[in-house]
Design a protein around this nucleic acid. Structure first.
Length: 507
RNA sequence: GUCCCCAUCGUCUAGGGGUCAGGACUCGGGAUUUUCGAUCCCGUAACAGGGGUUCGAAUCCCCUUGGGGACACCA
């Protein structure tokens, strides 16, 4: 059996759409699962839509995601070039072959001619006229014109396109891997332009020719392509080629059911109601874990099946479990809440070392100078489970590296009374006297002082947290103090005992 | 308009003739805790509608409705 070969074939129109990333992911997963090849091919045959830097952007997103192609523009391969714009000779050759076999014909119609034809049809009550067997003999093409006139036009350099000759009364049947049996009637497909008058091929020709030449075995792409399957099937038939297997993926929509559009979004933080950002780069910038994004979109239209309730998957696990047969037919809505939850789950599964490394790479770390690795790992240990984004780390970790410069005003009002300072003073002496400055001993010291004054522990704990961290919330207080160390804690207590009453204007 | 695709909790989904229709996210409640978070319990919530087929339909068939896609010398 032939080696499985799949391709991701985007057109570089600027940004990478979430749906596009999922198509790439499914192709990648299938290739890896089957031990096959994953090919990247750039479909840049529309020079009017060329966007500067789009290819670079695309490749960088793929690399970021870890979906590394086996063949492609950056990676080379036996079937290159992988830019369709560099393969125009090939397409011309195959268009000629079709012409020779009588499966395609020259079309000299100008855009105005076609517009006029459609306008006539519209007036006659057909709003979406096709260029096909019903009217092709009324148009200007090599079927309707006398041979001499055709030759003359070509010799003159009259612009022409090459169109596919679609027969009347044919049925086209596909066995789609996700949709099952689908039938089309040839009266629904028009004499598609294969080669444009600028010499570039249309998607349909280039796609079929390349998929064949690149020995693609499975075409996995969005549902928007389902209705052009008959054209492709006809082309394979005309060329005498074996068509690949097809899998048309369900679409992904906004929460309000609309199409995901870049136009709706200004920033990820200010999403219009019911909308979601389609640009993968936005999520990367926001600091989402790549594994969480991949996990999230993988689940949009696929699941591991009965008896497997797992929601959290690494890329490797997805590769392990993936199959075309478990792809859903119905469109899915992108759910940011679930992405957020998955993001946290993926952070939880990261090792403290990898988080420490990520956190060291951030600019805030640089400002702190030398950071002791064991100490950093200690901080990560305390903060790990409360991180929603790795990027939140330094906002939460400040007091582990610097004495508080201020205290949360509201919490101070609530937790600090005139009796607090003397109590903390007493606590401070207790800490000084303690043998080991570890969580259990710290708590023991605190409970001792509380009992001595017949107070609830919380009456000491809250102001103590404020004094030591400046904040009202955070990890377990005793653990945090142990990590900070006795010296730092005593210093901060002294500082707070002096400053807080001044701030509050008491004592 | 024509053709094609789709239809289970708000969302992602399992289940494909006999299930109390299961899980996850969200939301609500509780437990725990020095706080936040995490965790653990508990709860709310669905087979779009109508016809068939069948002893029996969420499941198979048909229709309706709703949603989506395609109908370019764009991909």
């Amino acid at each position: 059996m032939a080696k499985t070969r799949v391709r991701f074939a985007p057109s570089p129109t600027g940004f990478v759409h979430i749906g596009s990333l999922r198509t790439a992911l499914y192709n990648y997963l299938y290739a890896r699962n089957q031990g096959g090849d994953f090919i990247l091919r750039i479909e840049d045959t529309d020079r009017e839509r060329f966007v500067e830097g789009a290819v670079e952007n695309l490749i960088s997103v793929l690399e970021w995601a870890g979906l590394r192609p086996d063949e492609g523009p950056r990676w080379g391969g036996a079937c290159g070039p992988y830019f369709q714009s560099e393969r125009t000779e090939t397409y011309r050759h195959y268009a000629q072959e079709l012409l020779k076999k009588g499966y395609a014909y020259y079309s000299f119609d100008t855009p105005a001619d076609i517009e006029a034809m459609r306008a006539r049809a519209k007036a006659a009550g057909n709003p979406y006229a096709k260029y096909n067997f019903a009217n092709r003999m009324e148009m200007r093409n090599s079927l309707s014109l006398p041979p001499a006139e055709v030759e003359e036009a070509i010799a003159d350099g009259t612009p022409y396109a090459i169109r596919l000759l679609v027969p009347e009364g044919r049925k086209f049947e596909v066995e789609d891997e996700v949709r099952g049996h689908v039938v089309f009637d040839s009266k629904e497909v028009d004499d598609q332009v294969l080669l444009k008058s600028d010499g570039y091929p249309t998607y349909h020709l280039a796609n079929v020719v390349d998929d064949h030449l690149m020995e693609i075995t499975h075409v996995i792409r969005g549902e928007e392509w389902l209705s052009s399957v008959p054209k492709h099937l006809l082309l394979y038939e005309y060329f005498g080629w074996q068509p690949p297997k097809m899998a048309h993926l369900p679409l992904i929509f906004n929460p309000d059911g609309s199409k995901m559009s870049k136009r709706d979004i200004q920033s990820l933080e200010a999403l219009p109601p019911g909308k979601v950002d389609p640009d993968v780069a936005s999520y990367i910038r926001r600091g989402y874990e790549k594994s969480a994004i991949l996990n999230c979109i993988a689940l949009l239209g696929w699941n591991p099946g009965e008896g497997d309730d797992r929601q959290v998957f690494s890329l490797d696990e997805l590769v392990q479990e993936f199959s075309l047969g478990r792809i859903n037919k119905s469109a899915a809505i992108f759910d940011l809440k679930k992405l957020n939850w998955l993001n946290k789950e993926h952070i939880m599964r990261r090792s403290p070392e990898s988080i420490a490394a990520a956190v060291r790479a951030m600019p805030e770390a640089e400002a702190l100078g030398e950071i002791d690795q064991a100490y950093l790992l200690g901080v990560v240990g305390l903060l790990h489970e409360r991180l929603h984004f790795i990027g939140d780390f330094w906002r939460m970790a400040g007091y582990f590296f610097k004495d508080p410069e201020s205290y949360e005003a509201e919490a101070l009002q609530k937790r600090w009374s005139p009796e607090t300072a003397p109590l903390l003073q007493e606590l401070s002496r207790e800490f000084e006297a303690a043998g080991v400055f570890a969580a259990a001993e710290i708590e023991q010291a605190l409970r001792t002082v509380a009992e001595r004054h017949d107070l609830k522990g919380s009456l000491l704990i809250h102001p103590l947290r404020l004094a030591v961290t400046g904040l009202s919330v955070g990890p377990g207080l005793f653990e945090l103090m142990e990590l900070l160390g006795r010296e730092t804690v005593l210093r901060r207590l002294t500082l707070a005992i002096k400053q807080v009453p001044m701030i509050l204007g008491i004592g």
